[in-house]
Write a protein that binds this DNA or RNA. Structure first.
Length: 794
DNA sequence: TACAGTTGTCATGGT
DNA sequence: ATACCATGACAACTG
């Protein structure tokens, strides 16, 4: 544990700072074993928001080793606190829920899809929400040029990898389609981040896309433009089963021998389809086949319209047959996550593309969509890699307006793409709600905010929320949900809003001011500030930021989870300048003005800032003492009247030992001693009350943020659910088409077709397929799921 | 003046 | 036992 703390307080803090710069919320706890306490508690001690603030023990709890108050190790302690404060200040520039979904989109210049229009009408992106503008003046030559890029850019720009902004400009040249709009700062940041990762033990090659690419190229060199790549083959085979080569050639599986009477092609198709469907939907033998559909649908189904899910499913089931269904679904989920699309704004706003691809696949495969979900950084950081053969050319076709309005209708665009080299791409992005990808709706429009000028958090949140729901409802309607279902969904969403984040949108709400430092409104609710109150009080983040920046460190209660409404704390190190306080490890975290708090002049009792303001505002030129008497607090007046020979600040803030020494030094009457103790009690209680109130506020804020987060998650899950529903429907349609096709080709011994209304295909437990009369099938279903192997041959 | 929000204070309980 | 902190409740203050 000791090593752990040392480790965290140095390397990890710096690492966290850097991650915070790019808006990544670092959940360092995930690095640790579950048995270990949360990092925050290691570094900060128990959550100060919910536990008592042991100010006098802070040093011990923070560093954990019982540093004596006079120990020189206190400097280390203060350094740690200062670093932590820097972290906190940094995160004020980011949104409280910094989900970073970073897309790494590889545009393979060599695999330019010959898909129709090369005029490449670019997607019109909404301002701000659009993706990188290739013509942005911020684009560094390195990122554009690609070849000359320094390695520090993670080789995002390397020509072969050609990371490109998803929605590239129409005039995008093949050679400069690298990470557009990555500003120099971003690049430097990434580089620094990489160095930190190196420090943490991560090899650069982990992040070096080009290196990995080259390695894989060496391992399995193949022309990218060729469709012979195994991955591509898998994709294509998966997507288009009928066009596929014999499966055993690709997957190593042998073609099952059931239904030997069927034509080979039919058998193949059937087997492929059945395997696919069985792997995807674990229906039992009693599975009912869909009702007969019209011939056109059958044709469509057998046409292998490559939808996203289909492609993914097929790829998964065929390329990795050893995976169990659970894993497959997880993979599908991971890929489906592509539609949550918080990332485009990440790319847009921050112009930062972090390539932390730790995928094991050959990233060079231009047709491989890679999703890294298990990045050790954070669960909230979704790193995606997507490969786009030619963004500018394909996107318009990939995302037609009515993209997925009706899955039963074949779309020429999709078919055309399916026939092309980008079939997998199409299948990857096809059915996903990519229409939303490039629209400004995307959630995290303000997730990463590194620019000092922050968008209106209110509108951003509102837009996010509304568009989320709108898109969800639209999706539901597209899905053909019934009106009732749609209304139900809407009700769900409404009920969400019933959770009322209105307060979060209120001016004083921190959630509305997720970029809290920009929330001047929050100061209205927590208005007693450092300069005003003098003694204690809340302060806005901006104020705190300023104060803490100036002070360099802060101590005392700082709820780790809250970015808002922090109190202003004094730099304990400044106490070192006070001889009588050098050995005091006492920091009550209150906004005591040092100048007055430790004034050694009894005749000048501390004047609160409020009083100072009043004094300034007072046009009357009263004697100083009168002003003091008039505006001093009751205790101050009492102390003055009782001729207490030291300031209230000392009375309140001195540790008990020194306080007792102070009392012993002076010969005080009983009434004076009682007053002093009352002053001390009241003063401490005052600060305690303020801390308590602030804690309450932070708790409320935190709860609001949690509610928002949960809402986002719920919306995302609903989207995913609907995607799955759509996928299942498409698969059912496809299977039904194949089913019909098989039936049309089945012949009995006399060459007569089996009437579909009298016979049905049944699955055997061993994967065999048999034809049974419907009556028998139903009877057997009723009787027993067990079925006899009763193959019928043509 | 009414009112809501803020702040100080007390009482009480816990550490 | 003592000191300290947290917190509910109340009242004064403030705009």
């Amino acid at each position: 544990m000791l090593y752990l703390k040392k480790y965290f307080t140095e390397g990890l803090i710096q690492f966290t700072i850097l991650l915070s710069l790019i808006g990544v919320r670092v959940d360092v706890d995930s690095y640790l074993n579950n048995q270990l306490p949360p990092l925050r508690e290691i570094i900060l001690g128990p959550s100060s928001a919910y536990t008592q603030t042991q100010f006098h023990n802070l040093r011990n709890t923070l560093d954990g080793y019982g540093i004596h108050p006079k120990s020189v190790d206190l400097d280390h302690f203060f350094t740690t606190r200062r670093l932590l404060n820097q972290v906190r200040q940094l995160d004020r520039l980011s949104v409280p829920t910094p989900e970073l979904n970073t897309w790494l989109v590889h545009r393979d210049s060599e695999t330019v899809v010959s898909a129709g229009s090369h005029s490449s009408p670019s997607i019109t992106l909404d301002n701000g929400a659009g993706l990188d503008n290739a013509n942005s003046p911020d684009v560094t030559p390195a990122m554009r040029g690609g070849s000359g890029a320094p390695e520090s850019t993670y080789n995002l720009n390397a020509a072969e990898s050609t990371l490109g902004a998803v929605a590239s400009e129409e005039n995008q040249e093949p050679g400069r389609n690298g990470g557009e709009d990555l500003s120099k700062e971003d690049i430097d940041l990434i580089d620094v981040l990489w160095r930190q990762d190196i420090d943490l033990g991560a090899g650069r090659e982990v992040f070096n896309y080009s290196n990995r690419q080259k390695e894989t190229e060496e391992e399995k060199p193949r022309p990218q433009e060729s469709n012979n790549g195994t991955e591509q083959e898998r994709w294509r085979n998966g997507v288009n089963a009928q066009e596929a080569q014999p499966v055993d050639g690709e997957t190593g599986e042998s073609i099952p021998e059931q239904l030997p009477s069927l034509g080979s092609q039919t058998s193949l198709s059937l087997q492929e389809c059945l395997r696919l469907l069985e792997a995807t939907f674990p229906f039992g033998q009693e599975t009912e086949f869909p009702a007969p559909v019209v011939a056109t649908e059958t044709a469509v189904s057998t046409e292998d319209v490559p939808s996203t899910s289909q492609g993914v499913l097929t790829q998964l089931t065929q390329a990795e047959p050893q995976l169990d269904l659970e894993q497959q679904w997880q993979d599908i989920m991971a890929i489906m996550e592509l539609q949550t699309m918080d990332a485009n704004t990440t790319l847009v706003q921050n112009n930062t593309v972090v390539s932390v691809s730790n995928g094991t696949r050959d990233a060079n495969n231009s047709n491989y969509v890679h999703t890294t979900r298990s990045t050790p950084i954070n669960q909230d950081v979704s790193l995606h890699q997507a490969t786009l053969p030619s963004c500018s050319q394909d996107f318009p076709q990939m995302f037609p307006p009515q993209f997925d309005s009706d899955s039963t209708t074949p779309r020429p665009t999709m078919l055309r793409l399916a026939s092309g080299n980008s079939s997998n791409i199409n299948s990857t992005f096809g059915a996903t709600n990519l229409t939303g990808v490039f629209l400004p709706q995307v959630n995290s429009s303000s997730n990463i905010t590194t620019t000092p000028i922050l968008p209106d958090p209110f509108s951003a949140l509102l837009e996010e929320s509304m568009l989320d729901e709108i898109s969800l409802l639209d999706l539901a309607m597209e899905e053909g949900f019934s009106q009732a279902q749609a209304s139900q969904l809407e009700d769900e969403l409404d009920s969400d809003s019933g959770l009322s984040l209105d307060s979060g949108h209120s001016p004083a709400s921190p959630s509305s001011s997720e970029t809290s430092c920009s929330s001047a409104a929050s100061s209205s609710s927590t208005s007693a500030t450092f300069s005003e109150e003098g003694a204690v009080g809340y302060s806005t983040d901006s104020e705190v930021a300023t104060a803490e920046t100036e002070d360099g460190a802060a101590g005392g209660y700082q709820p780790g989870f809250s970015k808002l409404c922090r109190m202003s704390y004094q730099d304990p190190s400044q106490f070192h300048n006070l001889p009588q306080l050098d050995s005091i490890s006492h920091n009550h975290t209150y906004n005591l003005q040092l100048s007055s708090a430790f004034s050694e002049r009894p005749e000048l009792p501390l004047s609160t800032a409020k009083k100072s303001i009043r004094d300034k505002q007072s046009s009357k030129l009263q004697p100083h003492q009168d002003l003091m008497d008039k505006h001093a607090s009751r205790d101050e007046r009492r102390a003055r009247s009782m001729k207490i020979p030291f300031t209230n600040e000392k009375i309140i803030n001195l540790p008990v030992e020194e306080f007792n020494e102070l009392l012993a030094k002076h010969h005080l009457s009983e009434s004076q001693l009682a007053l002093i103790r009352d002053i001390r009690r009241r003063g401490k209680n005052k600060m305690a009350a303020q801390n308590c109130r602030k804690r309450k506020l932070d708790t409320i804020i935190n709860l609001e943020q949690n509610v928002q987060e949960l809402r986002r998650n719920k919306a995302r899950l609903l989207k995913e659910k609907m995607e799955f529903i759509r996928t299942i429907r498409q698969m059912k349609q496809k299977m039904h088409g194949l089913y019909q096709e098989v039936f049309t080709q089945l012949r009995d011994e006399e060459g007569r077709p089996y009437p579909p209304n009298e016979y049905s295909l049944q699955y055997g437990s061993d994967g065999s397929v048999l034809i049974m009369p419907r009556s028998m099938a139903s009877a057997e279903q009723n009787r027993k799921p067990e079925k006899k192997q009763k193959d019928k041959k043509k």
